[in-house]
Design a protein around this nucleic acid. Structure first.
Lengths: 269, 269
DNA sequence: CGGCGCCTTGAGAGTAATCAACGATAGTGG
DNA sequence: CCACTATCGTTGATTACTCTCAAGGCGCCG
């Protein structure tokens, strides 16, 4: 993951990341849903603009703006968020590497929320028109895309449950389980360990908790030997127990059995 | 709205509601987004099956089932919900009259949530195939449908904000503002008054609050002269103040200015 | 008329927020 | 390269919001 400082990073030439043999994580994500032909993949990559590097805590789309293009996050953590008048904010969802924020044709009208980076991020654009053509000509991609959108909605619902009924410890456990699975899907987690470039404040804005309480909850999790969180990296020591605490059911992430040690999907493919 | 008891209602002949000159609220809702031709409307109504009546607290789609068809709620309140092992449940969103739960093609695989009635409901089915054809042949409907889906996602996000950052009073105020606007769109609210056939327990399951605290919060709202809630009917006395308390911004509901006394949309139509 | 579910009220406990201060860390500039 | 400073992480003390438990009343349906 990105480790350079903001100032350092923004000084580096953009094209540094353009074609570097790095696997395209959006491709990897879609392939976890449906097999793609090389022609599918080539077309998909043609739709994506030259990737650009953004510093941490930068807005990609501001509240009130219409999104002219779709976005793909190729590296780093971004998020949807809603800023309150009081200064506090609520994070609505994460855009992890491989995740997409598409300027859907129905996105006309102003947005009620913003999209911004949390860590430094490499982001490519996808013009609306090109995206529409892509879907038209590549049914596999269109199918995977719809599945992906469905997962996004289900994830938002999982967050509603998280905020509605769970305690601080349970919420955090659930978030960590979800993150680990999602990072696994795009190959960024190994041995129950993955990057987590968030401050405790941002975790609080995600979980509806104060930064102080996030801190104490993290300590409790460490004390129980559940996790380790340092150097912007999360390690889960006891995933089964963490899942049990969180009442975590990975079904909503639609991960195929081969990718996760969790319960098999009853799904039809 | 429906007032009959469950047993009474289920004994009544189904066809009682089939064609009664009652305006189709799904049509009304879509027309609030985009004008529809009479051919559009006829096609839409052809897709809908004979409406059926369901009692309160009945599952329309159970967790783990795949949805074979889409649903339209024509009368009554239904909801998406997630049942916890502990017995508590979280309501994820309401299906008000005119709202749709579509068996999207991407809905393959098992659901992580259920759909059930809250009050008695009249519900029609929409076969997947017929829906897909409808979208193909009626671009206006397809457009309005996409907008509708977008509103659903934005509403889920508004609920995340609600649960994440607001106090009990603020949450409830926000919910009531949203409900009133949504009911207004389909013509079921007049003079800031609309049906609300929910128990305090169900309000609690919506807002992440205990039934006891819901009760006390309602009393506080009444004491402040904000609302009246009796006989399954909600009346908002002071909508501006309620909106201010809730920090309510109706933008996410994409209601055109003519329908709401709230701030004008910057929207492009 | 009896019973069940919902609303209401009271008391007590607990979880999480707020306020405040200090230490650690990392990016900034000299 | 090092000092400076802002941000983040940590801890303690206090407050307060919300939950849980418990019991009574009311209304509706059988």
């Amino acid at each position: 993951m990105i480790t350079g400082s903001q100032a350092h990073a923004t000084k580096m030439p953009i094209h540094r990341w353009a074609h570097h043999g790095v696997p395209n994580l959006l491709v990897r994500k879609l392939e976890s849903i449906v097999p793609l032909s090389s022609s599918d993949i080539a077309a998909l990559e043609r739709v994506m603009s030259q990737p650009r590097l953004f510093g941490p805590h930068v807005d990609l789309i501001q509240e009130g703006e219409a999104a002219e293009t779709g976005l793909v996050v190729l590296e780093g953590f971004s998020c949807y968020y809603k800023q309150r008048q009081t200064g506090t904010r609520q994070i609505l969802g994460y855009l992890l590497p491989g995740d997409v924020c598409d300027g859907d044709a129905a996105d006309l009208g102003s947005r009620a929320h913003s999209v911004g980076t949390l860590s430094p991020c490499i982001v490519a654009q996808m013009p609306r028109r090109a995206l529409a053509d892509l879907m038209q000509q590549h049914p596999s991609i269109a199918y995977a895309w719809r599945r992906m959108k469905r997962i996004e909605v289900d994830t938002a619902w999982a967050w509603i449950v998280n905020l509605g009924v769970r305690s601080a410890l349970e919420r955090m456990a659930h978030l960590f389980c979800e993150l680990m699975i999602r990072m696994e899907v795009v190959g960024l987690a190994q041995g129950n360990s993955c990057p987590l470039p968030l401050t405790q404040i941002e975790l609080g804005q995600t979980l509806g908790l104060s930064n102080v309480h996030v801190n104490r909850t993290l300590q409790e999790m460490r004390r129980q030997g559940l996790i380790e969180l340092k150097g912007k990296s999360l390690r889960i020591f006891d995933l089964p127990r963490l899942s049990r605490i969180a009442e975590f059911d990975p079904g909503y992430l639609q991960v195929s059995t081969s990718m996760s040690e969790h319960k098999a999907l009853s799904g039809h493919e």
